[in-house]
Amino acid sequence: MDIVKSSIDTRQLALRTAEKLIQEVSPSERKGLQALMHLAARQKAQAERVLQECLPALADDGHDDPYLILAIANAYGIVKQPTRAKNILKRTISSIPWTPENADGLEKCWLEVVDNQISSGRTDAAKELLTKILNHNKSCVTAYQYLGYLAEKDQNYKMAATNYDSAWLHSGKNELAIGYKLAYAYLKMKKYPECIIVCRHILKLHPDYPKIKKEILEKAKTNLRT
């Protein structure tokens, strides 16, 4: 899934959120965010420490903290236990209610689950969960991006363009990798004027953006003239 991995990384998103929120939440909510911070360097020793400290906390609290689960899943990934990482993330789908307090962490957990589902070929399940995410948060750039990727993989460029366009707009037209994919979808749909507009926007922000001039913009211009 190079398309998704080239422009987003849910673990990095979680880390940035942790940095932003860690001083704003109550002490009881800080454990998961602090654990994510400890995992930033992706060191095995820190991951083992997070597992040692967080697994008992998850059992003792009587309820699931999505950031704590995300940290545990990431720690399992670092110590090369991907099955355990996937299994603990799955519990967030049914066991944690979507509330304003849980929304951000829960969304990130679900996006991790989506990534796992796509990697294992369970695209229908991924689409269902992405729809669930968008029902709660209609501005989730990453969810639209995943849906665009899945539609592009099926060569459904109309649906790909619809989702990439939503991701493009909700990202403030600053995520250039999304813009590139949107321009490509427009090219495949023969919507050359729209394709050219997106290409020019990208090149205005990044004049040397890789491949877009030769592989997309020039082709769109040539086809528009013929």
Rank of each mutant, 00 (worst) to 15 (best):
Y144P: 04
G105L: 05
D65L: 15
A75I: 12
D61F: 12
T142F: 00
L89C: 12
N156V: 08
L205I: 08
L106I: 12
D115R: 13
W98G: 01
A126G: 02
L58W: 10
I93W: 03
L36H: 09
S166Y: 05
E107R: 15
Q23S: 14
S139R: 08
Y164W: 05
N87G: 08
E128Y: 09
H63D: 13
D104Q: 11
I202G: 01
S7N: 07
G77T: 06
L150I: 08
R84H: 12
D208E: 13
Q12D: 15
R200L: 11
K158E: 12
L21H: 05
E101Q: 14
A45N: 15
H170N: 12
T131V: 09
I178Y: 03
L68Y: 03
D61A: 15
D65W: 14
K5L: 09
Q117N: 05
I96L: 03
L21F: 07
Q155V: 05
Q23K: 11
C199S: 02
I202W: 01
V141Q: 00
P193I: 06
D60R: 14
D124N: 05
Q145A: 08
A40C: 03
P82R: 07
I3L: 12
L33F: 10
G77V: 11
L176V: 07
H206I: 00
V141T: 05
D165C: 00
E107L: 13
D154T: 09
T131K: 10
I8D: 03
R91Q: 11
M189R: 05
L224Y: 15
W168N: 02
K138C: 02
Q46C: 12
Q34G: 12
W110E: 00
S95V: 11
I216E: 06
Y157K: 07
K80G: 00
S139H: 06
I197N: 05
A14W: 14
I72L: 13
Q43T: 10
D124K: 09
K213I: 06
I202F: 03
A183V: 06
G121V: 06
D2G: 04
A35E: 11
L13Y: 13
N174D: 02
R91V: 13
E175M: 01
I196R: 03
A160K: 02
I78N: 14
A59L: 15
E24R: 09
K190I: 07
P210Y: 01
P210G: 06
D61N: 14
D2S: 00
A14D: 13
H201Q: 12
M189S: 01
V114C: 07
K214V: 09
L182K: 00
K211F: 11
G179L: 00
H201A: 10
M37S: 11
E215V: 06
N116T: 00
A160F: 05
I133Q: 01
Q43E: 15
Y186H: 01
A177Y: 10
K127C: 10
I88P: 02
E215K: 10
K219E: 11
K44A: 08
L150S: 05
L130C: 11
A41G: 01
K188E: 11
E215S: 07
V25Q: 00
C195E: 08
Y164E: 04
